[in-house]
Nucleic acid binder design. Structure first.
Lengths: 348, 348
DNA sequence: CAAAATTATTTTACCATTTTAATGCAGTAA
DNA sequence: TTACTGCATTAAAATGGTAAAATAATTTTG
C-alpha cells in the first residue's frame, strides 16, 4: 500500500534510522546520504505515518479546536484565523463540534489521551470548568469567549474574552440613553450553566436597575432552545410582541437572535428602528448585510483568535496562562433610534 | 502520565492481551476477569491510545470531512447531520477546512496515509478529481455537492449532488416566466475550474438562450473573489447596478451572494421585488430570515448529508460507488415578481 | 478417569516510527 | 602500533496497543 520508512531505507540503501534522522533533521547525515534518502522519498511519495510517529514521540503537533455549536456564524469568523495561525506555526488543527454544553472537558480529555494532542482550544460553551479539569488535561488549554469558574487557578489555563456583562450593560444603557424604557431581552440560556449569554443577561438587568427602570418579566424571553439562533430569535420575538404591546426596544444576546427578532418585527408590519429598536451581539455579517443593518456589540473576532493562539503557544513554551479581555465595539448602524410615537398609537 | 494497558493489566492481575480482549469485546473472557479489568479501567480512568491502536490495526474508525470554505452557512447545515450520523455508527468525524480549490485530493491523500483514515467526504470544491486520485486514496470517498470529472469510473467514488445546471435553468426560467428579460447573474468562479457555480452559470446562459434572450455580458458578474459571499454579492450587485440601469432580476449562484446583492439593491433605494427580483441558491437561513425573505433554489441539505453517509458506509462494506442526484426545491418567498415599471421610469 | 474439546489466559510477534546505544572508520597523538 | 577522537551509520530497544499462536485451566465425552 503506502510506503514506509523501510521502503525508503531499502531503496536508498541506508539504514532505517538514517532515514528517520534525515527526515527529522536530527543528528549527523552526510550530504550524499541526505540526497539519496530525499530522492527515495520523492520517488515513493513517502509520507511518514503519524500514528507511529506520535506513538513514539508521545506528542503530535496537533491542536484541537472544540467548538460548542459550530453553526454559529460568529465562531466561523474565528475558525478561519485560528486555522491560518496554527498552520503557520507548523502545527495541525483539528476541529471538533460539541453539541451539548458541559461535555467539553470530558471530550477534550479523551481526545488528548487518545491521540496525544498537544493543545486544546475551547470555543463557546459554559464557565463550568474546574481546576481539576485543567490538571487532568495535561496540555495547554485556551478558553475562547468563555472563562473558567472564578476559583480556578489562572495559571492553569488561558482565556480570551470580552466582558460580556459590561458590554451588555453598555448596549442596554445605549438604548436607555436613546429614551427607551420598555426594553425587552432575548437570551438563550441552557440549563443552569453560566454562559456568555447569561452574563449578558446580568448586564442587561443591571443596566435597567441602575437606571431606575423596573425589570418586567413580560419583556424577557430566556429559554433553552436547541434550535438555531435565527428561529429562536424569531419565535421569541413573536412571542414578546404578542404578550407586550408597548415594547420599544430589544437587546438580543446574539446577532443570529437579533436577525430572527428583526424578521419577526418586520413581519408584524412594524418598522426598525421607528417602532422597535434592535441591538445584537457578536458582529456577524448576516446582521451587517441585513436590511436594515442591525446595531451590534461587535467582538474583535480576528484579534481574539490571534490572541488565543499566542496564548496557546506561550503555554506550549512553558509559560503560565494568559488572560486577555478585549473591548467590544458598539456598532451603530441605524437599527436603534429614540422610541417613536406613531407606532404606539397605531398599535395601542 | 496517562495510564496504559500495562497499568490496567498489572492492577487487575491479568495479562495485557486479556485487557485488550475485554476492551474490544473480542474472544473469550470470564465474567470475573471482565469485571476486574473494567474496575481497573474505571479506577485509573484509562483511555486506550488511539495512535497505538490505529498503528496496529492499520485503520482508525475515523472519517475525515474536507470542506472547501467551511464558512459557507449552507455547508454548516450538512456538517451537523454528517457528524451525528457518523457518531451514531461508532465512527469518529474530523473536520478539516480547505481554503483553495484543487488541493482537496492532495490533502485527503496525505491525511489518509498520515493517520490511517478509513474514509473521506469532500464537501464543495471543484470537479477536477481524476481516476488516479481515487485509486491513490485507497479508502472510500464521497463527493458532496460536487462530482468528479466525467471520464472517471463511477465505481471508484460516490457522489451526492443536485443537477446544478438544470436547477439553475429552472430558476432562470422562473424569472423569464414572470416576464423578465434583463436578467443579471452573479457567480463566483475561481480559476478555470468546473464548480457547482460554473454549472449554474451554464444553466443560466442556457435558459436565456433557449428562450431567445440575448446574453448580455454587462448583466453578468463572474469573478474570482476569495472574500466572503456576502461582501462579494454586495460589491458585484453595486457594480451591476451602476453599469446597467435597466436590469430587473438577478440570479445569485449562492444565497450568501443573494443576501449581499439584496443589500446592495435596497441600499440604492430600490425595492425587492418591485424593482429588482432576486433568486438565490442553496437554502440558508440567512436568506429565509432576510427581509424580504429571498427566493431560493433550496438543496435538501439533510437528506443529501444522510445519503452521503449511507454511500460512504456502503463503500466501506465493499460496495461500489453510489451516485445520487437530488432534486432541489424552488422556494418562492416573494423576492421575485413580474418586472415593475415604476422603478424603470424613476431611474431611466 | 484419561482424552478430547472447550474455554480462559498468556506469550509472542508485529505495526511504523524515534531514540539510544553500539559499531565502523578515518584521522591524529602518543 | 596502539589508543583515542569525532563523524557517519546501523542495530536494537521502546512506544502502546492488537492478534495469532501457544499454553493453561476447565469441562465434556468416550
Amino acid at each position: 500500500m503506502s510506503s514506509t520508512i523501510k521502503d525508503i531505507a531499502k531503496l536508498s540503501g541506508v539504514g532505517i534510522s538514517t532515514v528517520s534522522r534525515v527526515l527529522n533533521n536530527s543528528g549527523f547525515a552526510s550530504p550524499e546520504t541526505r540526497e539519496k534518502v530525499m530522492a527515495a522519498v520523492r520517488e515513493l511519495n513517502y509520507i511518514p505515518n503519524n500514528n507511529a510517529r506520535n506513538l513514539k514521540k508521545g506528542s503530535s503537533k496537533t491542536i484541537e479546536l472544540l467548538v460548542k455549536s459550530i453553526t454559529n456564524p460568529f465562531f466561523q469568523k474565528m475558525i478561519h484565523t485560528i486555522e491560518q495561525k496554527i498552520l503557520l506555526r507548523g502545527y495541525n488543527l483539528e476541529i471538533k463540534n460539541v453539541n451539548y454544553s458541559g461535555q467539553e472537558m470530558a471530550i477534550a480529555l479523551r481526545e488528548v489521551q487518545d491521540r496525544n494532542l498537544c493543545g486544546v482550544i475551547l470555543m463557546g460553551g459554559s464557565f463550568e470548568y474546574t481546576e481539576q479539569d485543567f490538571k487532568n488535561l495535561g496540555v495547554p488549554c485556551v478558553l475562547l469567549t468563555v472563562s473558567a469558574a472564578p476559583d480556578v487557578d489562572k495559571a492553569l489555563y488561558s482565556s480570551v474574552i470580552i466582558d460580556d456583562e459590561a458590554e451588555s450593560y453598555k448596549a442596554t444603557e445605549y438604548l436607555i440613553s436613546l429614551g427607551h424604557q420598555r426594553i425587552g431581552c432575548i437570551c438563550n440560556i441552557y440549563g443552569a450553566m453560566k454562559t456568555p449569554n447569561s452574563l449578558r443577561f446580568q448586564g442587561y438587568k443591571k443596566a435597567l436597575a441602575e437606571h431606575g427602570i423596573e425589570i418586567d418579566p413580560s419583556l424577557i424571553s430566556t429559554m433553552n432552545d436547541t434550535r438555531s439562533g435565527y428561529e429562536f430569535g424569531f419565535n421569541m420575538m413573536k412571542n414578546l410582541l404578542s404578550r407586550n404591546k408597548n415594547i420599544t426596544a430589544i437587546v438580543a444576546m446574539a446577532d443570529v437572535i437579533a436577525v430572527g427578532a428583526a424578521k419577526a418585527v418586520l413581519s408584524e408590519g412594524l418598522r426598525i428602528p421607528d417602532d422597535i429598536s434592535i441591538i445584537g451581539f457578536d458582529g456577524i455579517e448576516a446582521a451587517e448585510y441585513y436590511s436594515p443593518a442591525l446595531d451590534t456589540v461587535s467582538q474583535p473576532a480576528e484579534q481574539m483568535a490571534i490572541s488565543a493562539i499566542d496564548a496557546l503557544f506561550a503555554m506550549l513554551q512553558g509559560e503560565e496562562g494568559i488572560h486577555t479581555v478585549f473591548e467590544a465595539t458598539l456598532l451603530k448602524r441605524g437599527s436603534c433610534a429614540p422610541p417613536g410615537t406613531i407606532a404606539k398609537k397605531e398599535r395601542g
